[in-house]
Amino acid sequence: MNVFRLTGDMTHLASILVLLLKIYATKSCSGISLKTQELYALVFLARYLNLFTDFISVYNTVMKLVFIGSSLAIVWCMRMHKMVKRSYDQELDTFRHYFLIAGCFLLALLVNEKFMFPEVLWAFSIYLEAVSTIPQLVLLQRSGNVDNLTGQYVFLLGAYRALYILNWIYRYFTEPHFSRWIACVAGLVQTALYADFFYYYFLSWKNNAKLQLPS
């Protein structure tokens, strides 16, 4: 564990807590893409299959349970909670995320570290996570103004993977047989997808203005 990875995990956890705060405090999920939340739940379920078979550390196990539990709770909330689901921007959240799932699964079958079931699923979860935020970014551009908590949520979500890239660079130089090119390339793509959001988020912070994404 290094400072980049720990900070990355804490940033990821913070993004989930901000999203839970938004939904719980405002009883609203306006501006949040249900499709992105479903993709994240799938990412965690596909990646953390080894939760009960390979014990790595208490930290690792606890965080996996938190990520799986929170992502499923958010999907449940947005689908079933009568007050929350009323605020869901159904007509704006129309990105065809099933194509992302199919595409990532096909890619995982072709490009993986070992053609074994757990490895293919792990690669699938890495590729899927890289594109999971697309429905959310599309929704933000369509919905124009973004409320503060939603903006902070998306910012933290993007920032965590950027910190993971620093973690991979650090491990590459400090660990002899470290090779994580699948996660690294996918992480670069994932972070690059946030580039224009980061730019407008920075502008809104610098000018102390409301976050506006050009539609």
């Binding site: 990821h12 570290e113 973690n167």
Partner: peptide, 10 residues
């Protein structure tokens, strides 16, 4: 190999 230890990250 890399496949085993790649599971130490979240």
């Amino acid at each position: 190999g890399s496949a085993e230890d790649s599971k130490d990250e979240l």
